[in-house]
Design a protein around this nucleic acid. Sequence first.
DNA 1: GTGGTCTAGACCACC
DNA 2: GTGGTCTAGACCACT
Lengths: 81, 81, 81, 81
Amino acid sequence: MTFEFSGPEPLYAQLADELQRRIEAGVYPVGQRIPSEAEIREEFGVGRTTTRAAVEILRGKGRVVTAKGRGTYVIAPSPAE
Amino acid sequence: MTFEFSGPEPLYAQLADELQRRIEAGVYPVGQRIPSEAEIREEFGVGRTTTRAAVEILRGKGRVVTAKGRGTYVIAPSPAE
Amino acid sequence: MTFEFSGPEPLYAQLADELQRRIEAGVYPVGQRIPSEAEIREEFGVGRTTTRAAVEILRGKGRVVTAKGRGTYVIAPSPAE
Amino acid sequence: MTFEFSGPEPLYAQLADELQRRIEAGVYPVGQRIPSEAEIREEFGVGRTTTRAAVEILRGKGRVVTAKGRGTYVIAPSPAE
DNA sequence: GTGGTCTAGACCACC
DNA sequence: GTGGTCTAGACCACT
């Protein structure tokens, strides 16, 4: 993996950016699940709070929806507007 | 079928509500069997645990009784008094 | 799939033979899970009793071990003897 | 560690037995915290549900009390009398 | 970073 | 072929 944290931006924001980049790139395809919180934590070496804050940003942007007990899924940017 | 899961309420609770609605509406008549857990799973697209949790709620409310190997039956609100 | 039931041998015995063939052929590798009862039922179009009887034969032959809630796994023929 | 799961007893029951054995042996001393659920999962290689079911048994037996966000603690067999 | 809740799906006992 | 039990693992609330 080539991603590295850097600069003054908060970790959770950098992480959110990286996750969104992967969504745009199709690494996490629309309709599919993104890695679980535990997997994200392991891959990026971050804590749970950071992970959740990053995912929360994507949720706020409408890029993912989260289903308790099942996972967080990528959705289309703005289906009908 | 017009039912859809939505909102933050757990799936099993929404499913229990829907099943109860059908009992009140007579879709599942008193004295009759409600669909098997396998049929509920298929119709609503949920897992076994969710199905059982929903039926368990109706059991707790005294709206159904379940007989191992035979099925789950609708009973009257105040059975015998 | 090319498998077909035929002849006077009981279904569950034919099914056990086919499953064992697949184990020998490495279709179900040692240490891996064989298909679930539901998957076997669907693929071969048989009932649960037939499925369970077939798997029970493999268990008796020591070709698989079954772990409740997790699945049935292929084990080595006779590790130490 | 020498502990191994074996036999037909459910994993969670075997795990509860092992944990209780360690409490009796003083490995987990009275008044101290037992390993977190994550640590138990890692050591015994089981899932979250199995871990929680095992600890729940000890809770039911009154051998431990659990404090949300802090951990699970060993208490004396007859706490205060 | 802990325990809490919820979901999916495996095999089992019984009718 | 029904409901019963057990296991794994997801996200959540809180310390």
